[in-house]
Amino acid sequence: MNPVNYLYLAALLFTIGAAGVLIRRNAIVVFMCVELMLNACNLAFVTFSRMHGNLDGQIIAFFTMVVAAAEVVVGLAIIVSVFRARHSASVDDASLMKL
């Protein structure tokens, strides 16, 4: 088996995650889908690392995880405060950007 298959899997997971972001209204689920996309990227990086024979890809994946952790912390805090204010976690309810 060629490790390229991992890349196909990563692409598939990434697309599924993106579709989830677009389809779901619950902000928490949307956030999970974002995490799924990040993980798909990480898988691609790890696979690239193996294919190229150096560890830089893994380093990138590592940093991605750190940044994702930071992002989750802030993002969930935002969700909680929005939920407190509006009693809803739906991204559609916060459609304040409309004219």
Binding site: N2, P3, S49, R50, M51, H52, G53, N54, L55
Partner: peptide, 8 residues
């Protein structure tokens, strides 16, 4: 592909 043996 190169493999990670050497790098690891």
């Amino acid at each position: 592909f190169a493999g990670l043996g050497a790098a690891n």
